[in-house]
Design a protein around this nucleic acid. Structure first.
Lengths: 141, 141
DNA sequence: TCTCCCTTGATAAATAATAACATTAAAACA
DNA sequence: TGTTTTAATGTTATTATTTATCAAGGGAGA
């Protein structure tokens, strides 16, 4: 079992959340997939384990893990990936190669200073943030 | 005429791009709307000016202005807004209030240093980036 | 066991974006 | 000016993504 899966198990015990089959499977599949998965990719992969699986089931599990910061939604791809930092943080930075589609999560999970200052100046309370950088990776250039 | 509209006009002359009616109207409506607009909101607003307007027409105009950095797509809202910086830059930071929906564009249009370093270390060439921060604004808290 | 509450099942619909091909119109050039 | 080329729009249809709604199931505590 991957580290994040164990962590999820412990999280559910500690917080009295139910680790149902759809939730388990959704997290496991995302955790073991190198690239971010779209909702319908997930549905396809789940079909063999959950008969008659429908979009709401998957979206609910995705919402659950997202809410608790186990997975991230990559907005510009409509796709989901595991939080690679094992930090369950609220913000993430993704570096996305437009050529091969590889996505890596940068490991600076704080907001950059200049933005922090902007928020402070404007008394804005950040809850969640997302940085997505599109470009060309080393392999593809 | 707003500054950005004049700029767009000059841009088209200088770059031999055609400032067609759909393009003009789409830019104008986005420029004059305080909040970001969704594609189908735009379609509704255009109905009085362009009979029988259909999604592809709007999406094409949006692609055009986005490609040339006159507008930004806010990924987490599926919405579009004018580049408020008049800088026609490739990156943007949005501060989005989850309560009232107000969106402001922060004026630091460079990538934060720590990410710059990460990209350099990994020889990744950024083409476009997007920072979206969700939270609660001063008025709503 | 009964009840409450959370989760899933199931059906349908809303919202968002694109594909494919026909048509129009501006630009380029003889 | 007439012809060709190119780019943009018009049109129809479809695909992709997400959500609403209500019925049913199942575990935890009274």
């Amino acid at each position: 079992m991957k580290n994040i899966e164990k962590k999820a198990f412990e999280f559910c015990i500690a917080n009295k959340e139910r680790l149902t089959l759809p939730r388990q499977l959704v997290l496991k599949i995302i955790a073991r997939n190198k690239k971010p998965l779209k909702a319908y990719d997930l549905i396809d992969k789940l079909r063999s384990r959950l008969v008659n699986i429908k979009p709401p089931t998957v979206y609910r599990a995705l919402d659950f893990w997202q809410k608790h910061n186990f997975i991230h939604r990559i907005e510009s791809l409509n796709a989901f990936c595991i939080c690679s930092e094992d930090k369950l943080h609220k913000g993430a930075q993704f570096i996305i190669c437009n050529s091969c589609g590889e996505v890596v999560e940068s490991d600076s999970c704080n907001l950059p200073k200049i933005i922090d200052e902007f928020l402070k100046k404007n008394t804005f309370k950040p809850l969640k943030w997302n940085i997505e950088i599109n470009g060309i990776c080393q392999n593809c250039s």
